[in-house]
Design a protein around this nucleic acid. Sequence first.
DNA 1: GCCACCGGTGGC
DNA 2: GCCACCGGTGGC
Length: 326
Amino acid sequence: MEQDHQDVVTPGKMVRNDIHGYEPADLNNVNREPNALRVSTSPDIMETPTQKPAEVTSSAGEQENQVGEDDENHGENAHSQLVLYDPTITATAEAKPLRARKKSLPNYTSRAFPEVGAFAVQCARCFKWRYIHTKEKYEEIREHISERPFYCETTREWHSDKSCDDPPDLTQDGSRLWAIDKPDIAQPPPGWERILRIRAEGGTKFADVYYESPSGQRLRSKVEVERYLEKHPEYVARGAEPNKFSFQTPKPLQEEYVKKRRPAPSHDINGAYDVNPISWVPPDGNAGLLGGSVPSAPSDAAPLHVPDGNSPKKARLTGKSDAVIK
DNA sequence: GCCACCGGTGGC
DNA sequence: GCCACCGGTGGC
């Protein structure tokens, strides 16, 4: 049924625009189309009183079929990938916010947004979304997505055996927050973990990426990585080269998820006041605003959620101090 | 005291 | 306008 959008990524250029997956036109539609996206808080997820993650709904989901039709610019092998944040899934079992995990707190009271709940990649041929069962697999696919487009059949690698004739594993509906990932990001070096944290809605940025070294050291920028590797050549010897680290973050499909920076005291042409880009409904924990969109759908299975969650101790590398960990 | 998360901005 | 980078701090 519905598949969602067809992202188009031209093999050659994988940069920002492509990343959005949607070709621009499409993207725009999504944003403009009143119904295209809806935000909602997810009721059933943690009871975070304050900022809850919002989810993106895309009625666009229903357009899937029109893939070929509405805008097809995905002429060539359109393919792209998308990270799917599914708070529901994440909130359920194993995956817990780091903080909670760490302190073994059962609740989700922290503002922390859980890690990504599930990963999906779009088939370059039929444009259906397929779950990728593990973060590792996802990272592997993403690393070469440009040269090696993903197709339904790729799921054979993990014995999922989907084909383009099968219904999509998931579609965009209101149950998840979708974001489009950047392609071709190197897999983390052996022993390292790349961690993506989604920030709360309405903030100045969408997400943060960190790398956690085999010893549990968390690094949050290339500069920190380089500094760290200089002190720990042993990791370099084991494959941790600076160019294997990428701090690029995915982009939320719902553009307003992130606050625009400085609306600039503009008056726009029509004299109209600037359209306040952000008219948030404060996350008062009210689930209402959502247009009740689609019943969440894919129901079950979430074969994949990501995280594994155990991580050693973390130490933070502060600017100049050396942070060594052993 | 620590650190996860957030904001802000310099530099492109 | 964007985003890499890093300082600050609330919540634990």
